[in-house]
Simulated scan of single mutants.
Amino acid sequence: MEDGPVKFRSFMEPLLQVAVNLEASADAAFRTDVVKYAFTGLMRDLRGIAMATNSRRTYGLLFDWLYPSRMPLLLRAISLLTDEPEVTTPLLKFMSEFVLNKAQRLTFDSSSPNGILLFREISKLIVAYGSRILLLPNGTNIYRSKYKGIWISLTVLSRALCGNYVNFGVFELYGDRALADALDISLKMTLSIPLSDILTFKKLSKAYYGYMEVLFNNHITINSVLNLDTSTFVHIVTSLESGLKGLDTGISTQCASAIDSLAAFYFNNITAGDNPPSPAALNLARHIGELPSLFPQILKSLFEIIIFEDAGNQWSLSRPILSLIMISEQDV
């Protein structure tokens, strides 16, 4: 991968021929085994190449090869074959690797729109997959048919949201719904899964709570979780409390971080806010007004864990306590 663009294009020539042949295939042909095998092989090869791109330069070679000419093929495949996990799983796993900003490889020039353009493509894929997977009936193996694709989708979105290569304020400023649509469909996918199943499947749990941490830490003011109805909002926060009580220290740390962000947002914008509250803050105040015991219950659970259990991440678990105490002191 350290060779120049000419050698890279020569190396990618066989994959280019496969992609061109797939693009020339009719929609009906995508259901045939020949096309499905060719596409899944292409996705696995591209994932391996993406894993090998550990620098800005080598990643740029792959990005330029893929965008914009090859992206419609990915969107077409995930739209036509949503019910074929043997196809969608390699595709989503490739995207999960492709959007991962390891070693700061996704660093574009200050004048480059590539970060925004990449996220728009991610949004299209997630929305296309999520809007269709939610309509499919539950199969005999629901993890394989639905949950696996959903948790990989959440991983893709989480990595894109915290990759630090997209200025997300641009989307709202210019009326682009790429971010809002991606958050909306991802929340719908998470809410379609019973909490008991989230806690049962380990990979699903890690993806779900990782996504919630990113959502609460970085995008709490976006048209997303705070705009839900109160019962749904309480369900999500209750799932965070359940994660706190779990045995996985990584998940409990993520839950504590998400709760800390939520409590701090409440304190800064409602309890101690001087300016008129934002719509997001008003929604949060409405939720807490309908269930005032929500924050005190979480605070109680945190104290019980720290005092009575031998948690290996006590410092992380203690972080939300100050925020929760400060927003509860008015009730003391």
Rank of each mutant, 00 (worst) to 15 (best):
F108R: 09
L91C: 14
L117V: 11
P113G: 00
D109T: 00
L100H: 15
L91D: 02
S96T: 06
R120H: 08
T107E: 15
R105D: 11
L91H: 03
L106I: 03
P113I: 00
L100N: 12
I116S: 02
L117I: 14
F98C: 07
K93H: 15
L91N: 08
M95G: 06
R120C: 07
F119Y: 11
N114H: 11
S123W: 03
I116T: 05
F98L: 05
F94K: 11
S110D: 11
Q104L: 13
N101C: 05
I122T: 08
E121C: 04
S111D: 15
N101R: 10
F108K: 06
R105G: 08
S110K: 15
D109Y: 00
G115A: 11
A103D: 11
L118M: 15
T107Y: 15
N114C: 05
G115H: 10
L117P: 12
N114S: 09
I122N: 05
E121A: 03
R120L: 02
F119N: 08
Q104A: 15
N114P: 01
K124Y: 00
M95K: 01
L91Y: 01
S110G: 11
R120V: 09
P90Y: 03
S110P: 01
K102G: 10
F98D: 08
N101P: 08
G115R: 12
V99K: 11
L91F: 05
K93N: 15
K124G: 01
V99D: 15
I122S: 08
A103H: 09
I116H: 04
T107P: 05
L100F: 14
F94S: 09
S96Y: 04
S112V: 09
V99Y: 06
F94Y: 13
Q104W: 07
E97N: 05
S96V: 02
L100E: 10
D109G: 01
L92W: 01
L106N: 02
L100W: 14
I116W: 05
S110F: 07
I116V: 03
P90N: 02
L91P: 05
I122R: 07
P90C: 02
N101I: 09
K124N: 04
F98P: 04
P90I: 02
Q104V: 13
S112N: 13
A103M: 02
L100A: 13
S110I: 04
K124I: 01
I116Q: 07
K124L: 00
A103I: 00
R105A: 14
K102W: 06
V99Q: 13
L92E: 04
G115W: 13
P90K: 06
V99R: 10
R120I: 04
N114G: 01
L118T: 15
K102M: 12
K102V: 14
K124M: 02
K124D: 01
N101D: 13
F94H: 09
